[in-house]
Simulated assay, not measured.
Amino acid sequence: MNDKTLRLNHSTISARRFGLCMVLPTLIVLLVMTAYPLISTFLYSFTDYNYLKGNDSAEFVLFDNYVSLFKNSYFRQATWNTVLFTALAVVLEMAFGLLIAVFVNSLKRGQKAMRTLLLLPYLLPAVTVALSWRMLLSSNYGIVNQVLESLKLPVFNWFMDTRTAFGTILFIDVWQNTPFVFLLLYAALQSVPAGQYEAAGIDGAGFFQKFWYITIPNIKSSLALCALLRTIDTFRLFEKVNVLTGGGPAGTTSTITQFLYNFGIKSLDFGFGSAGGIIMTIFALILSSFYIKRAIQ
């Protein structure tokens, strides 16, 4: 082995060490902030650990917490509500976000102004959005019911009526998060080659043909990524439900996170709550795997 080869090997080793030193702090933070809590939650899920009693009195109960969870009718309803809400919210947000992105991208003027206005709902904190809509939809002084009443239309107690509570929460969530989908897809549309549209136009392709055969194939990776991010975020819905309905009426808006808050955090039964958290994580991974598989393909 000559001197030149030795110098190259030394340079390669030095570069790898430098790269490792640069990545190591981030890896440590990730391990502390994600791996450790996840492992702790997994271990606690097999115990009857209660914060008031402390670690010393905690005993292993194996799968008792998981059995209790699946026997709990409130948890089963919360799981169904969460899955249904996630499916509906993601589909609606993706559909509206894509339509708005295509519309704004087609504008000859005013794109910057439209982008700014459309992003405003997403920039607001979830609690602020929930409180604002609670005032607008109040059964006592809400402007929505006042308008409906003036038009001789039926009014509702939007958050406490079993017929409207779930749909109202869904509407508010879609209203706030559609701009996020719009932003990602609008950015993806900027990378679609204009020449493809021009060539399709010469061949006589209409708007819908261009949309289906040019727009969708070019942004399918962005669509999958967007759906994945929205699925993960929607699956842990909590703030709006907690502020507006508390899981009611009759559990029609209860979610897994709301269940964990009521029966895990508030009661300080961290063993039971940890089991719910692990199940929630598994459900989120299963739902997300469909998008990840589609993105890889």
Rank of each mutant, 00 (worst) to 15 (best):
S289D: 04
C226Y: 00
S106G: 14
R163M: 12
V91Y: 10
D269E: 06
G264T: 00
S288N: 09
T162L: 11
L124K: 02
A275Q: 00
L170S: 15
Y122T: 00
P249A: 05
F85R: 14
M1Q: 14
L287F: 07
N72P: 05
F182L: 14
Q111S: 10
N105I: 02
A194T: 15
I214W: 02
V104E: 07
L69S: 01
L8G: 09
A295Q: 05
S68W: 00
L183Q: 07
A35I: 12
F207Y: 09
S191H: 11
F235S: 07
G54V: 05
N50E: 11
V104P: 09
L185G: 07
F156Q: 12
D56S: 13
P154S: 08
P217F: 01
F259K: 03
S274F: 01
T116I: 06
A224C: 14
T168W: 05
N72E: 02
W80I: 14
R163D: 15
L124Y: 01
F75P: 00
I216L: 09
G54K: 05
G206K: 03
D203N: 13
T252W: 03
F208K: 08
V23M: 12
A165S: 13
I282R: 04
N2T: 14
S288P: 11
L189T: 06
T245C: 03
A130Y: 00
I278H: 06
V129F: 00
Y197C: 11
T12Y: 06
K4Q: 15
K108I: 07
A199M: 07
N177M: 15
L62G: 11
L8W: 09
R230N: 09
W212N: 13
G276V: 01
C226L: 00
L225H: 02
A130E: 01
Q297K: 13
E239K: 02
L124H: 02
K152T: 13
I172W: 03
N81Y: 00
M135T: 12
C226G: 14
R17G: 13
A126C: 10
L99A: 15
I232F: 03
L225K: 01
